[in-house]
Amino acid sequence: MKNVGEARGTPRGVPQEELAAGLRSDRSTRNRVARSILDHGPSTVAALAERLGLTQAAVRRHLDALVSDDVVEAREQRVYGARTRGRPAKVFALTDCGRDAFDQSYDKLAADALRWIAEHEGGQEAVAAFARARLAAQAGAYREAIEAAAPGERTEALAKALSVDGYAATARSAPHPQRGEQLCQHHCPVAHVAEQFPQLCEAETEVFSQLLGTHVQRLATIAHGDGVCTTFIPKAGHAAQASQFSQNDQQDHTASASTAGRNPA
C-alpha cells in the first residue's frame, strides 16, 4: 500500500540518516494503525493499542497524524440498544482517501497493461517507449520550475516540482560535495509497477538528465529494494567525469544512499 502520513518539517540538529530512519518507522507504524482499522472496522484507541501492542499515547499520536492527512476520521461509536451513561466512546474510521491508499488494483492494472504491451506491441522496447512518453508528458511542469530557478538551485527546484506529484523529493549535497548533489525521492507512486518494469526508472533518469542539461547517475531505487530513489547530479565542470567515477566512488555513493534509506523489512 502507499505510505500514509508524511512528516512535516525537519528538526534542527538531527542527523539526516537518523531522521530518515525515524520517519520510516513512523510511516510503518501509521500504516499498521490504518491497516488495523481497515481489517477490523472503526476502532477505539484502546482497541488499537491492544491489537498492535502499542501504548494508547503512541496510538493517539499516530491517529492525530492520520487525521491531519485525511486518512482517518473520528466518529462517535454507534450504540445499539439502550445507551449507557456517559459520553459515547470515540472511534476512528478510514476516510475515502484512506481506503484508496490501500487499493492496489490500479497497480495491478498498470502492470497487466504493460505486460500486454510487451507481449503484443513490440516487446520491452515498446514498454520503454511508453515510459518515455509518460515522463515527457509530466516534464513540462518540471521544466518550468527548473528554468525559473537560479543555476545553483535547479536540483532543489526539481525536487519541489517532484514533491507536488507525490515523490516527497529533497536535494542535498553529495558525499563528495565538490562534485555535486543528490536528488532523493522518498516515495515513488509507481514503485510496485517499476519492480517489474525497470524501464519506468530508466525513463525517469533520462528525463532528469534532459531537464538539468547534464549526465546524471541513478544510485538507488525504491523499486530495487532501497528506501530512497537517489540520483547523483554533478556540478558544472564535473559533468564530463560523472560517467567515469572510480568503482570506489560508486560504492561510496551507493552505500550512503542505501544506509540512509533501505527498507527495514
Rank of each mutant, 00 (worst) to 15 (best):
E125V: 03
D100H: 08
A194V: 02
A34W: 01
F197R: 05
D100E: 12
S209E: 15
A133R: 11
P234M: 13
D252V: 15
A149I: 04
V59N: 00
A145L: 07
A223T: 03
V71K: 03
A145V: 06
A203E: 00
A191V: 12
R154W: 01
N31A: 11
A148C: 08
T259Y: 09
T29Y: 11
V71M: 10
F92I: 05
A47Q: 04
D103I: 08
A157G: 01
A194H: 01
Q178N: 14
G22V: 10
R83M: 07
A111F: 00
R32C: 06
A128K: 01
G53D: 01
H62R: 04
A145I: 05
A168F: 10
A118V: 03
Q250D: 07
Q182Y: 04
A21Y: 06
T95S: 12
V59G: 01
E202D: 10
T10I: 15
V193M: 02
A242K: 05
V14L: 09
G140Y: 06
A113M: 12
E50N: 06
D249S: 12
Q241L: 06
E147K: 03
P151D: 05
R262A: 13
A47K: 03
N248Q: 13
R134C: 03
A139G: 00
A113L: 13
P198I: 08
E50G: 06
Q104T: 12
A82F: 07
S36Q: 11
R143V: 02
A136C: 07
A46M: 05
P88K: 04
G152D: 15
L114N: 01
V72D: 00
S25A: 15
T10E: 15
A255D: 15
R134S: 11
